[in-house]
Amino acid sequence: MGHTVKDAGPFSNDSVDLSDFVYPAALAVGKQQYDRGIFIDGVGYVSALIANRIYGVDAVVCQDPFCAKLARQHNNSNVLCLGGKIIGPAIAEEIVKTWMTTEPLTQEKYLRRIKKGQAITERHLKKLDEI
């Protein structure tokens, strides 16, 4: 799709601890070194849990293109988490395509909701330059 991609691993089929890979990749998104991240694990949820602990990251789990569209339109998510054990490559490709090409909605109600989520982040997460 014309994007620059950095594969952060792992580069084998060996069992790994997701935090060893998701944390540095999510941190790079939080620091705005990358605009977005796409993480693939067994079902997607552990990657999202880890990523959402980083200031500036809004990670979502999507299992179909409809959810991917809403995750961008309504929430302006910047990390997509996919479950490699529950979706196949064809649907994963459609989810990624939809998520990458959908822009956030700009109506007041969506902006208000996003701001409320950002306010929660401000109250409970440290900014990366404060760590």
Rank of each mutant, 00 (worst) to 15 (best):
I131Y: 12
K109I: 13
V46W: 06
L128R: 14
A28F: 10
L105S: 15
K97H: 04
Q32G: 00
A48V: 06
K69N: 10
S19E: 15
I50F: 09
I87K: 02
G56E: 12
C62E: 11
D129P: 01
V29T: 07
P24F: 00
L27H: 13
V79S: 04
S47V: 02
R53F: 13
G37L: 06
S15T: 11
D64C: 09
S77I: 00
I50E: 10
L82E: 09
V60H: 03
L105T: 01
A26I: 01
C81A: 00
A26G: 14
S19D: 13
S12Q: 06
I40D: 09
T102N: 09
I114H: 00
L27S: 08
I54P: 01
A26C: 08
V5M: 11
I38L: 04
N78D: 10
Y45F: 11
Y23L: 13
G56D: 11
V46A: 09
G2R: 12
I120M: 05
R53M: 08
P104W: 02
G44M: 10
V43Q: 13
P10S: 11
T121A: 15
G2P: 07
D41E: 09
Y23F: 11
Q32N: 12
S15Y: 08
L125C: 13
K97M: 03
L80Q: 05
I54N: 00
P10T: 04
L125Q: 15
R72V: 00
P24H: 08
E94R: 14
S77T: 06
Y23I: 10
F39A: 15
Y34I: 01
G9N: 07
K85N: 09
I131T: 10
L82Y: 12
L18Q: 10
Y23G: 00
Q63E: 12
G117W: 12
E103Q: 15
G117F: 10
R123I: 06
L49N: 14
K69V: 00
L82A: 08
H124M: 09
K97P: 03
K116W: 13
G42R: 14
G83K: 03
E94P: 07
A48G: 02
A92C: 07
V57P: 04
R123S: 09
D14L: 12
P24W: 02
A71C: 12
V57I: 06
I91D: 05
F39M: 15
D129N: 15
G84A: 13
I50N: 04
M1L: 14
H74R: 00
G56H: 05
G30V: 00
S77W: 01
V22K: 07
L82R: 01
A90W: 05
V60C: 06
E108Y: 13
D58I: 04
C81M: 02
F11W: 14
I131K: 15
E93P: 05
Q118L: 14
Q107P: 09
T102D: 07
F21V: 13
L80Y: 01
E94I: 14
T102I: 07
F66V: 08
A25K: 02
K31S: 05
P65S: 03
V96L: 11
I114Q: 03
T102G: 12
L49F: 07
E130M: 11
A71K: 04
G56N: 12
N52A: 05
I114D: 04
T121S: 15
R113L: 07
Q33S: 14
C67V: 14
E103G: 07
H124N: 03
P89F: 08
D41P: 07
N52D: 03
P89V: 13
I87W: 05
K109Q: 12
L82F: 11
L80V: 07
P10V: 03
V79K: 03
